[in-house]
């Protein structure tokens, strides 16, 4: 590694921010439940990436890896729970679109 550490950080940081923007946009600009979940997954990807980069740059790779492993396990459970909710919602409304099936207000 020839470049200075702050510069290396910025290099990775740009990609982290891009993934974040992408994930947030994907979550906010849609009314489809599964599409929101995909946006959330992209956000999780970006933060996983950032944790690994943080561990790499600060020399705590083992700690960062241990954390990322836990994050991945939690991520899977969240996705499974979300999938269950999506299926239940679909069974009740026959749509994945919250805009078509909106009933809660405020």
């Amino acid at each position: 590694m020839t470049i200075e550490i702050p510069q290396a950080f910025w290099y990775y940081f740009i990609f982290f921010v891009l993934l974040m923007i992408d994930g947030l946009w994907c979550m906010l600009a849609t009314f489809n439940l599964l599409r929101m979940l995909i946006g959330l997954e992209i956000l999780m990807k970006s933060v996983t990436f950032f944790l690994i980069v943080a561990g790499y740059l600060s020399g705590r790779m083992a700690l960062a890896q241990a954390m990322v492993i836990t994050v991945i396990v939690i991520e899977v459970v969240i996705v499974v729970a979300a999938a269950g909710i999506v299926l239940g919602f679909f069974r009740k409304t026959d749509t994945l679109n919250v805009r078509n099936a909106r009933s809660l207000k405020g």
């Binding site: 550490i5 702050p6 510069q7 950080f9 910025w10 940081f13 740059l57 600060s58 020399g59 705590r60 790779m61 083992a62 700690l63 890896q65 241990a66 492993i69």
Partner: peptide
Amino acid sequence: HSPVQIALPLPGGDGDVRTVL
């Protein structure tokens, strides 16, 4: 230009991931 300051890396890293975990 990157405005950040970063903690100095541990010399030799912090061990094996399995031990840490």
